[in-house]
Write a protein that binds this DNA or RNA. Structure first.
Lengths: 202, 202
DNA sequence: ATCTTTGTTAACCAAATGGTTAAACTGTAT
DNA sequence: ATACAGTTTAACCATTTGGTTAACAAAGAT
C-alpha cells in the first residue's frame, strides 16, 4: 500500500534523533518521539521493535556522520599543518549543523562503553595508523618537535570538541552570553590551529 | 532519638552520588539509591523530599569539589607557567579520585543549562578576571605570544578534561585497552603542560 | 511512667512507560 | 468485486516509578 506518510521510517528516525540526542536514551520517551513524528506510538514498535533498537539505529546514524569528520585528520593526504587547519576550521561548521551530536555520542558511549566494539566492525571506522606514520615522518624530518601521533590526535580533538560539549560550563565561568560565546568559538576557527602548530613547529 | 545509622543523611548522599554520577538524573532510580544506602525508599523522601532535590544536593556537592581544582588556574598567585604545570599535573589525580564527576557536571549542565545561574550565586564560584589580567600582563611583558585569557583558559581545560570524558571514544580510535590508555594519560601529566607552554612561549 | 519528637518501615497509590493486540484502512494484484 | 499484503490506529496491559501514609520504634524531656 501507499504509506500515509511518504516515508514513515525516516520520519521516525528524524524525530528519534532529535529527542535522543537532546535527552539521551534514559531521558527519552517513546510517546514524545511518536508525537514529534506525528504518528501512533505503535508505529515505533512496528518499524523498530523496541526502544533499544530504535536508539541503536539513531546512534549508528550519528556516528556515521561524525566519522568522516575525523577522517579529515586521520586519512587524508594533506600536509600535517594544513590538515590541522582544515579540521579545526571545518569542525565548527559541523557542530553548528549538528549541535547535540558529539555530546550525544560521547555521553552514550560512557554509559555503554562496549558499544564501540560494534562500531569498530564497520569498514568506515576511523583508523589512526596512517596519521601516526605522518606524525612520525614529520618528527624525523625535523619539521615538528617530538610527539606521538596519539597525543597529537588527542590534543587536536580536545581543543576542538570540548568547547562545544562544555559550553554551558564555560559560559558560566567566562560569564559570557550565547552571542559572546559564539564570538569566542568563531575566533577559535583559526586560533586553535595556530595554537597547535605553534606548539609543535620546530 | 539515636539514628539506626550513624548518619543516614550522608549515607544517602554517598549512595545517590554513586548512582547519579554513573547513570545521570534520568537514568537513576530512587529504589536503587535506597538499596545502595541500605535503607527504605521512604527515607530518601524524608530527608530530601523529592528526587529533584536529592539530585540537586548531589550536584552541588560535586561542583564544590570541582571548583577548587579550577581555582588553581584562576586564583592562585603562582607564575603562569607554573600554574599550567601545576593544574595539569594535579587534575589527573583528581580525576582518578572522582572518575565520573567532570562528565556528570558537564552532562547535567547540558540538560539544564540554567542550573549554572544558581551555582554562580555561590561565593566560591570560580572567577576568571584575575587570570585574564595575569595573561594580559605576561603578553605585555613579552613572556608569551598574544592570546586572550579566555582562549588560554579554554585550551587548558580542553586538553585536560576531554581525554577523560571521551575516554571510551578515544580508546576505540586508538585501539587501546584500559592499561594502555592509562599510560597515555600518565604521559599527559607532564606533556600537556609543555604542549601549552611551547605554544605560547616567546 | 508517659508524653513528645525524630527516625524508620511496610504497604500502598496514581501516573507514566514500554510494549502488545486486534481491528481497520489502503493500494494492488487476481 | 475480492482477496491480499503492508500500514496505521485505538485500546489495552503489565511493570516500573516517584511519592505518600499510617503505624511503629527509640530516645529524651517532663
Amino acid at each position: 500500500m501507499k504509506a500515509k506518510h511518504e516515508n514513515t521510517e525516516s520520519e521516525i528516525l528524524e524525530a528519534a534523533k532529535t529527542v535522543f540526542q537532546q535527552k539521551g536514551m534514559a531521558g527519552s520517551r517513546m510517546q514524545e518521539i511518536a508525537d514529534k513524528a506525528g504518528i501512533n506510538k505503535a508505529m515505533l514498535h512496528y518499524y523498530f521493535r523496541s526502544k533499544q533498537m530504535l536508539f541503536e539505529a539513531v546512534f549508528k546514524n550519528a556516528f556515521k556522520l561524525l566519522a568522516p569528520q575525523l577522517k579529515k585528520v586521520l586519512d587524508e593526504d594533506a600536509d600535517l599543518f594544513d590538515k590541522i587547519r582544515g579540521f579545526t576550521n571545518s569542525y565548527i561548521s559541523f557542530v553548528i549543523k549538528h549541535p547535540y551530536l558529539p555530546n550525544f555520542i560521547i555521553q552514550e558511549l560512557n554509559k555503554t562503553p562496549d558499544f564501540i566494539e560494534r562500531l569498530r566492525a564497520d569498514k568506515d571506522f576511523p583508523n589512526i595508523e596512517k596519521f601516526k606514520l605522518q606524525v612520525e615522518d614529520n618528527v624525523n624530518r625535523g619539521v615538528i618537535k617530538p610527539i606521538s601521533g596519539e597525543q597529537l590526535f588527542i590534543n587536536i580533538m580536545s581543543l576542538n570538541i570540548l568547547p562545544f560539549i562544555a559550553a554551558p560550563l564555560f559560559k558560566g565561568f567566562l560569564d559570557a552570553n550565547d552571542k559572546e560565546y559564539r564570538v569566542l568559538m568563531d575566533q577559535r576557527k583559526t586560533e586553535v590551529a595556530e595554537f597547535i602548530i605553534n606548539s609543535i613547529r620546530l
